[in-house]
């Protein structure tokens, strides 16, 4: 079984559209949406039956306003500016979005008015789709620990793939280079970067490629909307050589991506066009690479 993670660095380069198309082409796959704070894969794969579970992680400070004497000791010790004294009552007020759940305030409270509760950070779901079983999630607003939720989604996808004996896990990754991306790619069999022929797309692909190198993960790259700036596309192809990434091809700007999105389909399920042909060739090359 092989796990392929689709990332991009920059957002909006077409990760989800490409990942969904690859999942369809793979025929037998478990799919994981690791973009847990702006998940979109379900819009293309239209899940039918879903089972959801609560994801709890970390803690949040709670205050007993009856017991609080408004001394402000907790406020001074908090390094996340998560505690203020209410201007009217003079009692401590916790901002749950700023609280990182370290517990420092509970150590110093003079009136034992503070305690810690486990935080509900989101939900994760296992759904059935026409491309296979989809594991996805919804991180609560402003929640921490997206890396932990990503790891949970990947772990669940792996155990389902083992159970179903499917040869592929296709992962739709998050943008960026931080904790959610690191959690998405560590120990994967390969990373596919969907770069974009723009100055931002080029800058961001290089960073994310270096990150994948740092974790020693084999790297593929393709350029989306390559015809917007052919010179940059050529530069990215050259950079791929330097960064030890296998360049798979250039996807042209194609309105069919949008049309497919409105229909809740992937581009390889709509009328054949230039972009869908390139995506088929990407998949052929990836499969070739992993032939036993």
């Amino acid at each position: 079984m092989k796990e392929l993670v689709v990332i991009s660095g920059k957002g909006g380069t077409g990760k989800t559209s490409v990942a969904a198309a690859l999942a369809i082409l793979a025929r037998q796959a478990v799919i994981a949406d690791c973009d847990v704070d702006a998940a979109d894969l379900h819009l293309l794969l239209q899940p039918q039956k879903s089972e959801s579970q609560i994801f709890r992680s970390g803690h949040v400070a709670m205050v007993d306003t009856e017991a609080c004497i408004g001394c402000g000791t907790c406020m001074r010790v908090c390094r996340f500016e998560a505690i203020q004294l209410d201007p009217v009552s003079g009692k401590a007020v916790i901002d749950p979005l700023a609280c990182e759940g370290c517990g420092a305030c509970t150590d110093v409270c003079l009136s034992s008015a503070l305690w810690f509760e486990e935080r509900e950070c989101g939900r994760w779901l296992v759904s059935q789709t026409r491309a296979g079983t989809l594991v996805h999630a919804r991180l609560n607003i402003g929640a921490e620990n997206s890396g932990k939720l990503v790891s949970l989604v990947r772990k669940k996808a792996r155990s389902l793939a083992e159970e179903q004996k499917v040869p592929w896990i296709i992962v739709d990754g998050p943008p960026g280079t931080g904790c959610a991306v690191i959690a998405s790619i560590t120990n994967a069999d390969a990373v596919l970067v969907v770069a974009e022929a723009t100055v931002s797309g080029q800058h961001d692909w290089k960073r994310v490629a270096q990150l994948a190198q740092y974790f020693k993960i084999p790297l593929f790259v393709c350029v989306n909307r390559g015809d917007i700036h052919p010179l940059l596309t050529a530069e990215i192809e050259a950079e791929a050589l330097v960064l030890n990434a296998q360049f798979l091809g250039t996807i042209p700007y194609d309105q069919k991506f949008n049309q497919a999105q409105w229909q809740g389909l992937t581009i390889v399920e709509t009328q054949v066009g230039p972009a869908s042909l390139v995506i088929r060739s990407l998949w052929d090359q990836i499969q070739q690479q992993f032939k036993p």
């Binding site: 957002g11 702006a38 979005l97 700023a98 402003g142 943008p175």
Partner: peptide
């Protein structure tokens, strides 16, 4: 701001 709705976006927008 960074994309998304998690702690990074909150830190930027708050």
């Amino acid at each position: 701001s960074p994309p998304g709705t998690s702690c990074s976006m909150i830190a930027a927008v708050r």
